[in-house]
Nucleic acid binder design. Structure first.
Length: 878
RNA sequence: GGAGGCAUAGCUCAGUUGGGAGAGCGCUCGCCUCACACGCGAGAGGUCACUGGUUCAAGUCCAGUUGUCUCCACCA
């Protein structure tokens, strides 16, 4: 009898993640399950996590990333691979520096107030605080990362890797220093790379101005959005084919205020149809003009100070901000009669992605990496198929970026980061070296100064897959675990980071840093807007964990999502995943309650249709889930397990097992346990905590599910006939339940059921399934017969495949309604018959479709015809 | 200007080589059925954006149209 069995262990009625998760995680840590063993002989499977920036706490995007990686790692670990996941954090040079400066501003301090050393001291304190907080948060996500290998981009080893990278590039001639037009952020007072510039549309004015042509009283008109830069103009350009200006090319005009004479030149860059057809050329403050200037050998003038004010080149405008200077200059031009008109214009303005301040192109001497040669093998790696990018469509971004790559400006006028390993001597010599040189190789001077600038933060991120394993040293870890297997990232950093890891990995290690680059989407808020701190629409993963538990959050981020697609965050989804945790918990509780102390799991039991149906189903599930995970389709894999556990295991298997368990049938228990364990194993990567807790409660052969063997598909466990038998039982049960619901027959009212079938095989199926049929359809008695002569008059009838079910409920029968119901069924079957017939009559179908499909269609036709005739017969009786 | 995504039930989204439209939430009806009301059972609800093409067969493949979101580039 149920309930008579003493419980081995009490289980609460509902699952409480909070009492379980921390305890289990601590246990995992203590047992060292996350640690990968170098040189174990097992095939390595390596992932380096995208290191979160130490700028802030974990957000939903990190939680998402973290879930994906942990699913893969746990899956492969269970499959027997030596699975290593390396965690870490990124110093995020500029992003962190901006935040520290803001924090200091609260105290009324500036960088200069405390100096470089003082600032770095603060930065390291920042790292101590926020870096460790991120680690705590990653652990909270249930991540099975190897914490012994925790790395930070500014660790000694990783910094050594950065220096090595720079020096090697320098040795190959890929590093150069030069004055080029850079993106200058006046707020952060540093250059930034092209990738860090966001273009945003802003309302502005297009001003029509004019310069007087020297020696004449004529003027040449041009349009500009940035009148203040006329002070840096060194030419006016027109299109060579523009006849209006043909006579002016080669002449000279006058820049007011600067009192400079500049040439009128002809260049294809100018669009004769735009504006007046003439353009002022400012090589010192515009990327296009810089290019024109190179072609025509024009002087480059810089009119900006580092803080964004105008410099001494601008005479009386010196010290004004760009905005103030613009207003003054317009007014002054008007006074000189050089202002013509203005129009409203919507145009895009470059802003810094970190501080949102306007980026000014200006001349600066910076360090650059020549990209041409580095990009080639990275392109080749993809084209040859060695590097896989999934989903494939993201390869376009990768290819586009590498094909159109420009030299990489790597120097930053910041303090928090890796200082460039270059030393200046008063003689002018610059020495690039791994360690500080004792004296200048040129003049021998011992007075050398290291470059003040630091490197772009991505310079160190680019090395992450191998610097974390000890490169440039030949460490055992590097030998064993490199190259890594998978790299995962959001599409928004594919070009920042993914591309750079590939080319630097190939250059430095001679190998692709990873085989598969998987790209995921972004987490959007419930309105479909990207979650961001500035919009304040972010949802804190930890808050969700404290409400619903880690497993619920993890599953909700994965299940039912398409790879690479952005998706909206919905709290209701976490709720339903939380409910699923509870479902698993209660399934386990049920099994526990029904498992006697002396149950022998190793004995051989006589299995029934229901047992084999369940085993067969789970066997197929193992195959599907494995394949889906191997192709990185995590969303579909998760939903498959979810559906199996809820719909098949809980709603059918457990329900069918109940009468057998009451009768003391050990085979039923054996099957439930066995299949449940496999289902838990398949689910474990997605929901590590609840699966572990339940797994440990139910058995003692294995101490952790984490190291349990991943279920493997086996042909021997395919039971087609039994699956067919159980679907017939399910069809009958559903038919009875449906009638009962329609007639409002409460479960408490037990009924008699007559199942009439002229097929002996079918009768045997129902006879074998009698106990399930009885329980699941709330029947008192079930009679299975070859003829209907024993069926009482006035019974409700429902036709199913190969049988008719009669339920004698004379008090509920309304002949008219029954007629209507049966007629509706008749119409449905008739249309099915017609559909099958027309399909089979189509020669194209019978000739070209797969033979098994044609055969299946013919079988269905027979079935429908059979059912139709039975329905017709029932109707005639009414 | 270049490229890409998306358009399927009231909402949010799945839909794996082309072969009878699915889930969660919401809604309706009935159930505290001895694992679970964070639950159980039964339902309602869809011209798979539009047009054309390929095919015996299209939500699925191809072309175009419309709407929508995004990325890259440019914007005197």
């Amino acid at each position: 009898m149920l309930g008579m069995i003493p419980l081995k262990k009490e289980m609460e009625k509902s699952y409480n993640p909070h009492v379980v998760e921390d305890r289990i995680y601590a246990d995992w840590l203590e047992k060292g399950y996350f640690r990968a063993i170098t040189g174990s002989g097992r095939e390595p499977y390596t992932i380096a996590i995208p290191p979160p920036n130490i700028t802030s706490q974990l957000h939903m995007g990190h939680a998402f990333d973290c879930s994906i990686l942990d699913i893969l790692i746990r899956f492969k670990r269970m499959q027997g691979r030596e699975a290593l996941c390396i965690p870490g954090t990124d110093h995020a040079s500029i992003a962190t520096e901006v935040m520290i400066i803001k924090a200091m501003a609260q105290e009324g301090l500036t960088k200069e107030d405390i100096g470089r050393e003082g600032f770095l001291e603060r930065a390291w304190k920042w790292y101590d605080k926020y870096g460790s907080r991120i680690v705590t948060q990653l652990k909270k996500m249930g991540s099975s990362f190897d914490w012994d290998k925790l790395r930070f981009t500014m660790d000694d080893g990783l910094s050594k890797a950065v220096t090595e990278f720079f020096v090697r590039l320098h040795e190959k001639g890929y590093i150069y220093r030069g004055e080029k037009l850079c993106n200058w952020c006046s707020y952060c007072q540093t250059t930034i790379s092209d990738a860090e510039v966001d273009h945003t549309d802003r309302e502005a004015h297009l001003y029509y101005l004019q310069y007087q042509i020297k020696g004449t009283d004529k003027f040449i008109q041009f349009a500009t959005t940035r009148p203040e830069t006329i002070l840096a103009d060194t030419a006016v350009a027109v299109n060579p084919c523009d006849e209006r200006y043909a006579g002016l090319v080669g002449k000279t005009c006058l820049v007011p205020f600067a009192n400079r004479e500049i040439k009128i030149i002809a260049d294809d860059y100018v669009d004769a149809k735009y504006g007046s057809g003439a353009v002022k050329i400012t090589p010192g403050h515009d990327h296009n003009d810089f290019a024109v200037g190179e072609r025509h050998n024009l002087e480059r003038i810089n009119i900006l100070n580092d803080d964004g004010t105008l410099n001494e080149q601008t005479g009386c405008y010196e010290g004004l901000t760009v905005k103030a200077a613009r207003e003054r200059i317009l007014k002054d031009l008007e006074a000189l009669g050089l202002y013509v008109k203005s129009e409203k214009l919507n145009h895009s303005v470059g802003t810094h992605d970190r501080c949102k301040d306007v980026v000014e192109p200006r001349l600066k001497t910076q360090w650059f990496v020549r990209m041409e040669e580095l990009a080639k093998p990275a392109l080749e790696a993809f084209k040859s198929g060695e590097l896989r990018i999934q989903p494939e469509r993201f390869a376009k971004i990768y290819l586009h970026w590498l094909t159109n790559i420009r030299d990489w400006c790597v120097s930053r006028q910041l303090w928090w980061g890796h200082r460039i390993p270059a030393w200046y001597c008063a003689c002018g010599e610059i020495t690039v070296a791994r360690t500080a040189p004792e004296n200048c190789p040129m003049c021998g001077s011992v007075s050398l100064n290291q470059e003040e600038d630091i490197l772009d933060t991505w310079f160190s991120s680019a090395l992450w897959p191998f610097s974390t394993l000890g490169w440039p040293d030949k460490t055992p870890d590097f030998d064993y675990f490199y190259p890594t297997t998978v790299m995962s990232m959001g599409w928004e950093i594919l070009f920042f980071w993914g591309v750079r890891m590939v080319f630097s990995g190939i250059e430095l290690t001679g190998a692709l840093p990873f085989k598969d680059m998987i790209i995921h989407g972004m987490v959007l808020d419930q309105n479909g807007v990207k979650m961001s701190k500035s919009l304040g629409n972010g949802i804190d993963p930890l808050e969700m964990i404290s409400k619903y538990g880690t497993d619920a959050l993890r599953l909700s981020l994965i299940t039912g999502n398409t790879p690479g697609a952005d998706f909206r965050f919905r709290e209701e989804k976490i709720t339903s995943c939380r409910n699923f945790c509870n479902k698993i918990w209660n399934a386990a509780r049920f099994i526990l309650m029904n498992t006697p102390e002396d149950f022998d799991a190793k004995a051989a039991y006589e299995l029934t249709d229901a047992d084999k149906w369940l085993i067969s189903h789970c066997n197929r599930l193992s195959r599907d889930v494995t394949n889906l995970l191997d192709s990185y389709d995590l969303g579909l894999a998760a939903s498959k397990v979810y559906d199996f556990i809820w719909d098949e295991f809980c709603d059918w298997a457990i329900e069918m097992a109940k009468p057998r368990l009451i009768a003391g049938d050990k085979a039923a228990l054996w099957t439930l346990r066995r299949v449940f364990f496999d289902a838990l194993r398949l689910l474990h990567p997605f929901m590590p905590f609840v699966t572990e807790e339940v797994f440990q409660s139910l058995q003692s052969d294995e101490e952790t599910i984490m190291r349990s063997a991943w279920p493997v598909y086996n042909d021997e466990n395919n039971h087609t006939e039994e699956e067919h038998a159980i679907s017939a039982v399910k069809e009958a049960v559903k038919a009875v339940r449906s009638i009962r619901a329609e007639k409002d027959v409460p479960p408490s009212r037990k009924v008699q059921i007559f199942i009439v079938s002229d097929s002996r095989e079918q009768r045997e199926i129902f006879t074998r399934g009698l106990s399930y049929l009885k329980t699941l359809s709330s029947a008192q008695e079930i009679f299975i017969d070859g003829t209907k002569c024993n069926v009482p008059e006035n019974a409700l009838s429902v036709v199913i495949t190969n049988a008719v079910i009669y339920i004698p409920l004379s008090d509920l029968i309304d002949a008219e309604k029954e007629l209507a119901r049966l007629n509706k069924e008749k119409v449905r079957l008739e249309s099915e018959v017609t559909r099958c017939e027309s399909r089979l009559a189509n020669k194209g179908f019978t000739d070209k479709a797969k033979p098994e499909l044609v055969a299946a269609e013919a079988a269905k036709l027979d079935e429908y015809k059979n059912m139709l005739s039975k329905v017709t017969e029932e109707i005639s009786k009414l």
